[in-house]
Simulated scan of single mutants.
Amino acid sequence: MSAVCKGHKYKNSRQAAVGKEYYVIELTKLRGDKFMLNCDLIEMVEENPDTTILLTNGRYLIVQESMKEITEKVIMFRRKIYERSRGDKEFQ
């Protein structure tokens, strides 16, 4: 996987029921398991030496990606959302 990850469409049953789409970033747990995270939940990211993400609900996640990689993924996520809101065809 490249250092920059484009947002992925993610629908669970609750989101599908209300007809909304959410975009998330892909991260990797220390054991190698991949998971999707809504970056709106990120409150803080630290490297101590493992990369630790503090979520707005108080939960911590430890991931393989560096702080820089997470920052790049969040920027790409935000850029995609912004471009979609402007109606830019390149990002749709």
Rank of each mutant, 00 (worst) to 15 (best):
K9W: 03
K29E: 11
V18I: 09
D88H: 08
M36D: 08
R78T: 13
I25Y: 10
M1I: 04
I62Q: 15
E83L: 14
R59G: 06
I81S: 05
R84Q: 11
D33I: 10
R14E: 03
G87F: 04
L61M: 13
T52H: 06
R31T: 13
N57L: 05
Y60F: 11
A17N: 13
T56K: 11
M1L: 09
K89E: 07
E21R: 00
T71G: 03
S66D: 13
E90P: 00
R59K: 15
M67Y: 07
M76K: 02
C39Y: 11
C5R: 12
Y82C: 12
C5T: 05
V4I: 14
C5D: 00
I70L: 09
R86V: 01
Y10T: 03
E47C: 05
K68T: 14
K6H: 06
M1A: 08
H8G: 01
I25K: 01
P49D: 14
E46M: 12
C39T: 12
A17I: 07
I42F: 02
N48P: 01
D33N: 14
E90M: 08
D88Q: 03
L61S: 13
S2E: 12
S85V: 02
T52W: 04
Y82H: 04
K9N: 04
S2F: 00
I42V: 14
E65P: 03
T56P: 01
D50I: 02
L30E: 08
G58N: 11
M44F: 14
K68M: 15
L37I: 13
